[in-house]
Design a protein around this nucleic acid. Sequence first.
DNA 1: TCTGGGGTCCTAGGACCC
DNA 2: TCTGGGGTCCTAGGACCC
Length: 372
Amino acid sequence: MGDPEFKIRELIRRENVRVFSSNYALYGDLSRRVSDSLHSMVPTVETYSIDESFLKLGEFHSREVEPLARALRERVHRWVGIPTCVGIAPTKTLAKVANFLAKKRPQYRGVCDLRDGRVRGELLPTVPVEEVWGFGSASAAKLAKLGIQTAADLAALEPENARALMTVTGGRMVYELRGISCMPLELVEPTRKGIAVTRSFGNPVTTWQEMREALASYATRAAEKMRRHKVASDNLFVFMHTNTFNTDPFYSNGASARFSATTNDTGEVVALAVRLGERLFRDGFRYAKCGVMITELLPEAVQQPALWSELDRERRERAWKTVDSLNATLGRGTVRILSSGPKDATWKLRAEHRSPRWTTRWAELPKVQAKM
DNA sequence: TCTGGGGTCCTAGGACCC
DNA sequence: TCTGGGGTCCTAGGACCC
């Protein structure tokens, strides 16, 4: 895990490993289908991430819960075709532990139920702390010094001590491991606080022309994301740096600036990003990555009065809305501003091993041949 | 030659207010 | 001898998540 492909070529060859580029369109679509399948059986579902959901099962009779969990797996497998595991418990943190056990230990056949305190007493000692939600490597190192190694040790820790050691989130997790829920289901998607578009280049960038194209295209994406989430901002941060893994001469820099008024207009975002980038760019370096970040997002509705006249602003908003819907229908980047460069620019991330986007692109739809 | 891309929350300390 | 008692906002850095 985490190894760059070029470092393990020999292993890949020897073990006949198939290599795939990431395929976010496919993942997003399958995620939605899984989520739809879950909703078809359980009314209250929090979609937590692209591959995890929390389901409220309190309305079901206690005896129905496990059969329901198996039926959910069966339906997702039948409808979407991918395997899933279910963890059942009184809190989110314990449900994640249960899911971990369901996934790692074949004897549970994909469903692990931790509702019973005695069962928890048996199983929590077998789960390492690093596997518990909210405890990463830094916490694990602190806990190891105190001899705390398993989820059971963690549950036995005084919440006040956990809090002193790992802030309020650590304290909360200890309660959750004891079966006391501190994390309610979140059924409305929280409004986003920041947007970032950052990429490593497919090939090192050495010219301002290429850097400018990259920044313009990331700024375009950032503005699109803002419009999709119906938010706007008055500030922008741009950064660029060289490769940090090799011995290339090192350069890393970033800068931020404000718009005269909140905006999510691609033209304005691109212009400011490019202007900032021009200040940061130094000749003579091999750049590996750059990015555009926006914080302090506000709902579109509360935008400050703009520099543009209201009429002009309205027209521009309509124009970008039209561009968005064209791109939604005809594919991203079909209509774009000129400065973002050609669609096949060499700085773009390579995706040589990408599987077809079977379910989201007409051109990549699987073909079936029937012989009579 | 080649090393991912997004996010959130929390805390401490400084500056400032009345 | 004794030196107030609250607040807010901002920033940087750390830790964690998928």
